[in-house]
Design a protein around this nucleic acid. Structure first.
Lengths: 209, 209
DNA sequence: TGGTTCCGTAACTGATTGGTATCGTATATG
DNA sequence: CATATACGATACCAATCAGTTACGGAACCA
């Protein structure tokens, strides 16, 4: 996972890949607990039971480490090739946010909040967008909605690009500002009263009901 | 504005209230530029043309200063007693997000992103909620929607609490993650295709259209 | 076995920071 | 004028931190 120079190293002791994941996991943990600036390389090494040398052999800088940890976290997330397929868009949307257990989601969202502070200080990072955990969520929503459209479940004029952002942005707001995870009740209300009506709303007939 | 002990001070030179706003404004500026941790008390004093002593006489700690700066920023924001009243909910919602000029809004949202990092490190702050710039926005939405409900413009069963969060949370997502302000086109689509349909949707007739 | 690379521990360095104290000056009361 | 407070500037202190280096031991290969 560490992207920088990898000397062939066919000679001595092999680099232990288990140390990589231990360090990355510790980084995510601390990111969720204390944020980017509260996170010190010493604390990461401590929690991962690793030496700072081992860390710096893999990631040349703290920023690189955190960015890689976010990428690692992202990779564990939604698999766009194995999305739910319940037959109805409503079932798919509800299923998409169900499988992961609450604590796991909470950890991820808090880590994301920690990353936001890093972006504030390194303005260049904002453009890459590589850090956003919400982007794959939006992509998953989009795919589910496109499927529903080809099934004829929603009109061809539906504004999928907009609707796909509703739930993830609400999740982001709650995680980053309110510091609470989305619950099942809120999710149901969002799907039934906001997302599905928005998709069934044709841009031209605003007073359809 | 500084909340801590204010000795009567009837004897010597008076405390200059202009210094308060200069320091608070400098704090918000830096918060927007470099975030909470990138912000040093020395830099604030420097930009405000103030001595550090002058700052610490008013706010005992960096956290107090930033919290007060956010409150100051919040006070300049939406005036809940002077909300738009165009006669229609659609007009009101569009008018609510229009008056402020782009640069001002951008500064505020970037400052909010800077505050998020502070919350990550001081978990106690999350509970108070005093820091959130989006809360008055939600309150304003709620009031406009309640007005529309008493006018009979939307059904009495509408889920206002939910609908009032849609636009602010989308704004928060864009500001904090995407680092872009909401534009007029997106706002119109949100109002017409998402918020208004959601309000007109009765919880019971999910297939009304 | 010997050379090479990895590992964790720990000491170290240079820079930055929150917060305090001091100083000379300005502004107020009595 | 005497006293008291506020002001900006500056020096200062203790703590923290990113990143480096040194060390002794472990794993691998020839």
């Amino acid at each position: 996972m560490p992207e920088h120079d990898f000397p062939p190293a066919t000679r001595g002791r092999r680099r232990d890949p288990e140390r990589d994941v231990a360090i990355l996991e510790a980084t995510i943990d601390l990111l969720a607990e204390v944020g980017y600036d509260g996170l010190s390389t010493a604390k990461v090494a401590d929690r991962a039971q690793a030496g700072k040398g081992t860390m710096y052999r893999r990631w040349p800088t703290k920023t690189d480490l955190v960015l890689d940890a976010v990428a690692h976290m992202k990779a564990q997330q939604i698999d766009l090739d194995a999305l739910p397929d319940t037959g109805s868009l409503r079932g798919d949307l509800l299923a998409l946010f169900q499988p992961q257990d609450r604590a796991q989601v909470d950890r991820i969202l808090r880590a994301m909040a920690g990353v936001v502070s890093m972006i504030s200080q390194a303005p260049g990072l904002a453009e890459t967008g590589d850090y956003s955990i919400f982007e794959p969520w939006i992509a998953a929503n989009t795919i589910l909605m496109e499927r529903a459209m080809t099934r004829g479940e929603i009109p061809a004029t539906a504004d999928i690009a907009l609707a796909a952002q509703i739930i993830p942005s609400m999740a982001a707001y709650r995680a980053l500002i309110l510091r609470v995870a989305i619950d099942r009740d809120l999710l149901t209300r969002l799907v039934d009263q906001v997302v599905l009506p928005a998709l069934n709303e044709s841009p031209t007939n605003l007073a359809c009901c």
